[in-house]
């Protein structure tokens, strides 16, 4: 019983983590909080739905194409909306993402209306895995595997490739990064692309569990934020672990205390962390000037 709850919590936590990573990668590299991340992911998910339902593509193909769509969408948003704002205060860019959020929601509403759709999953009826006597649903395994792959891939990319190193340099000091030969617009475009990609994957994975509508990402965003704050927004691994912890805590409190408390824990976590340790459990206070 408790093992099931923990696995379920980890699987949910991995979904939160994907959304959180999508936001944090953009936030860390460009200092911009992307308020449109949820709606960007929603649009990618609807795009996948369109490929599946209207074009009748097989699931894997639709998901692969939608992932590319998510990536390209992120780059386009950066090029069209964020890039012209380089040099103006970060706040303008943040407000622009708020505007984009509204626009994307309306556009999706115009195209797909405000009803709900059932998003298929090839794993929905698969027989569960048995791990040491615990029956683990295949969807949970998929969520956890994808979550691990994303955090590993992202960490490797940022630490072991030149492009990733350049992006990390840009996140610390743009002028110095430029003096080293790093292109700030390229770094920013890659960060947005990765955000669009990872957020879109989260949308596609969560859609079968809830219904697909234009408010697909709302709940997930709040949890991603709570998990991210818990772990510390300036560390990707911290964000990942924070989201896992939140997912597990939610599941355990819903089962042992009360389901409504499981929801409330998200807000308790946000408030408690912001009061006690604003930099998060694994985060550290950013040292801007050495």
């Amino acid at each position: 019983m408790i093992a099931n709850l923990i696995v379920g919590g980890l699987a949910a936590g991995c979904l939160y983590a994907m959304v959180a990573i999508a936001i944090v990668i953009v936030l860390n590299i460009t200092d911009i909080a992307n308020f449109a991340q949820g709606e960007m992911a929603m649009l990618t998910t609807f795009f996948a739905y369109w490929l599946l339902d209207d074009l009748g593509l097989p699931w894997w193909q639709a998901v692969a194409i939608a992932a590319v769509f998510g990536l390209v969408q992120g780059v386009i948003v950066q090029q069209v909306i964020i890039r012209p704002l380089i040099g103006s205060p970060v706040l303008s860019a943040i407000i622009a993402t708020l505007g984009l959020n509204v626009v994307l929601n309306s556009v999706a509403g115009l195209i797909w209306g405000h009803q709900t759709y059932t998003f298929p999953s090839p794993f929905a009826f698969s027989a569960p895995f048995h791990v040491g006597g615990v029956a683990v649903p295949v969807t949970s395994v998929v969520n956890i595997a994808v979550g691990l792959a994303i955090i590993l891939g992202m960490t490797l990319f940022l630490r072991a490739t030149w492009t990733g190193m350049g992006m990390r340099a840009a996140s610390q000091n743009q002028t110095v990064a430029r003096l080293m030969g790093v292109s700030i617009t390229k770094s920013s475009a890659i960060a947005w692309g990765l955000g669009g990609l990872v957020g879109g994957i989260a949308g596609i994975l969560v859609a079968p569990a809830v219904f697909l509508d234009t408010n697909l990402m709302g709940a997930l965003l709040i949890k991603a934020f709570a998990g991210g704050v818990l772990g510390g927004l300036n560390s990707l691994i911290g964000v990942f672990l924070g989201c896992l912890a939140l997912g597990v805590a939610e599941n355990l409190t819903s089962a042992y205390l009360s389901p409504s408390f499981g929801e409330a824990i998200t807000f308790l976590v946000i408030i408690a962390v912001l009061i006690v340790r604003p930099e998060g459990v694994f985060g550290h206070v950013k040292v801007r000037k050495a």
Partner: peptide, 23 residues
């Protein structure tokens, strides 16, 4: 070599050196 040195605070010494070879 910029005024104020411009050392990247969250990079290790090794990473700070390596980023110089970015080009």
């Amino acid at each position: 070599v910029p005024e104020g040195r411009g050392i990247l605070p969250d990079f290790t010494v090794r990473e700070n050196l390596m980023i110089g070879a970015y080009v």
